[in-house]
Amino acid sequence: MSTNSTESSIEKVTQQKEENDGDSRKDGLPSTSRPYIRLASELRNLTKDLGDEVRFRCEALGTPPLTFSWLKNQALVEKSRRIKIKTRENSSRLVIQHLDVLDSGYYQCVVSNSAASVNTTSVLRKLLA
């Protein structure tokens, strides 16, 4: 869901680029000195049907190592048979299968490294039967 980033996300990324101009080279690769971090895209709000599956993908660029965590309504998402989290070096994916009414909520991806912590939130709205 994060592959096509929204307009607002592009704005944010550009903004952060400007702020980071001193720290990063034009090709987007990290400079040798200061650590940095930025999100590659923002999560979008969603409305789903009951029983569907939802996939959130969160990607970030920054000085490794990156730490990803997922929050639902401010609390860490607990994994289960239905709820899976797969994290790689630069991205993390949260998958919820067989959506239930009470799965609706504010889902937030938090990525951090030695430079800072950045986050993006998606509202999964009330699921319709």
Partner: peptide, 12 residues
């Protein structure tokens, strides 16, 4: 309400 409770309050 905690921040999380406020979010649940809004959605429900």
């Amino acid at each position: 309400l905690s921040p999380g409770q406020s979010q649940i309050c809004e959605l429900f």
